[in-house]
């Protein structure tokens, strides 16, 4: 799900950054409010960001010669609220890009929007909508599953429009597979496998954090 630099056009990357920057600005202000709530907030938030970093390192192979990983977007969205979750995931994606070459630096806007913004907000509102109607653990699962699938749809669109927009002499300039390929490959694998994994991770980790969080409130 981490789009590397060069896989999308510079114009796509810049559009992603232009959209992300005002959202980051607002998100940082919300995050500051969370941090100032009580003295444990910063430990709690840092631990959840670190969790997201670590869970993304655990690549899981699937049939078809590919792999993927959970993100923790719903865990962070449910426990921290969507804006703080978006900032935490964006920060993690920044370290991954700059230090480990995982995901692009210029593509940070696009990646933060898909895994951070779309993922966290979809998960959060699914949970808000379902949380009081069905057992909590089922709502956690659905939030994780839905957030992940929503994020994969965003990635499939961003990658899949590249060959529709940027071709030269019959060859793609950037990502070469269009929407008819990216949707089954990216969204399909997340509907069938990685969404389920994200859902299960959400159930386990949110239940754990709910027990240890003490006086911290999102």
């Amino acid at each position: 799900m981490h789009i590397p630099d060069g896989f999308i056009s510079p114009s796509t990357s810049i559009a992603g950054l232009a959209l992300a920057i005002p959202l980051w600005w607002y998100g940082v202000k919300q995050t500051k409010k969370f941090l100032n709530e009580n003295e444990d907030s910063v430990t709690y938030l840092s631990s959840l960001a670190a969790f997201s970093f670590l869970i993304m390192m655990i690549n899981i192979p699937i049939p078809g010669g590919t792999s993927g990983h959970a993100v923790g977007m719903a865990v962070l969205a449910i426990l921290l609220g969507p804006w703080t979750a978006f900032i935490a995931i964006s920060a993690v994606l920044f370290f991954q890009a700059v230090l480990f070459g995982d995901g692009g630096v210029l593509a940070l806007g696009a990646n933060s929007l898909s895994m951070g913004f779309v993922g966290a907000f979809s998960a959060y509102y699914l949970y808000e909508f379902l949380g009081k109607k069905i057992p909590k653990s089922i709502a956690f699962f659905v939030a994780g599953y839905g957030g992940m699938v929503a994020a994969s749809i965003a990635v499939a669109i961003i990658l899949g429009i590249q060959p529709l927009l940027f071709m030269q002499d019959g060859k793609a300039l950037y990502f070469p597979f269009d929407l008819t390929v990216t949707f089954p490959a990216v969204v399909g694998s997340h509907v069938l496998i990685f969404g389920v994994i994200e859902g299960l991770v959400t159930v386990a980790i949110v239940n754990f954090f709910e027990r240890v969080k003490g006086g911290v409130h999102a």
Partner: peptide, 12 residues
């Protein structure tokens, strides 16, 4: 693809 060549940074 042209754009993929030499894209990105050299991460440490």
């Amino acid at each position: 693809p042209e754009g993929v060549k030499d894209a990105g940074i050299n991460a440490p």
